[in-house]
C-alpha cells in the first residue's frame, strides 16, 4: 500500500522547532517559547503542543529547567542536523529515486541540473 497522508500536527510543530534551530533563530542553551506561547503561536490545543515538547525532549534536542522553561540543548544544532539528514536520506531520497526511475532520469541528468543551478546562483 502507498499512502499520501497528513502529518500529525504535533510533528508539524516539531518541524517548526527544527527549522528555528537549523536557521539559528533559536540558539543552543537559549530559552525557547513556553508551551502556552507555542500553542498560541500556532493556534493549537496546548495538549498538542506538549506532545511536541515531550517528543523533542525525548530526542534530547531541548531540555527543561524546572520553573524556568525549555532550552535548546548544548548540542541541539548537531542533533537536529543529524535527524534532518537522516530524514532526507531515508525518507525523501527513496521517493526521488523512485520518481527518477519512473521518469527515466539518470544520475548524470541530476548532476547536470544541480551544476546548472549552482552556476546560476553565482
Amino acid at each position: 500500500m502507498d499512502f499520501d497522508n497528513g502529518k500529525p500536527i504535533y510533528l508539524q510543530i516539531v518541524d517548526f522547532f527544527y527549522e528555528n534551530i537549523l536557521m539559528k533563530r533559536w540558539m543552543e542553551d537559549e530559552r525557547i517559547p513556553s508551551v502556552r506561547e507555542v500553542a498560541m503561536m500556532v493556534e493549537v490545543n496546548p495538549n498538542t503542543a506538549i506532545r511536541a515538547f515531550n517528543h523533542l525532549q525525548d530526542l534530547e534536542v531541548i531540555y527543561n529547567k524546572r520553573g524556568i522553561g525549555y532550552f535548546v540543548s548544548e548540542d541541539g544544532y548537531t542533533k537536529v542536523l543529524d535527524i534532518k539528514r537522516r530524514e532526507f536520506m531515508e525518507q525523501m531520497l527513496p521517493d526521488v529515486f523512485k520518481k527518477m526511475t519512473l521518469l527515466n532520469i539518470s544520475m548524470d541528468d541530476l548532476k547536470n541540473t544541480y551544476n546548472q543551478q549552482e552556476n546560476e546562483k553565482k
Partner: peptide, 14 residues
C-alpha cells in the same frame, strides 16, 4: 482516535 485509526488516501488498500 489517532492511535486506532488512520486517515488519508490509500492507493491500494486492502
Amino acid at each position: 482516535v489517532s492511535e486506532g485509526l488512520w486517515f488519508g488516501k490509500a492507493s491500494n488498500p486492502d
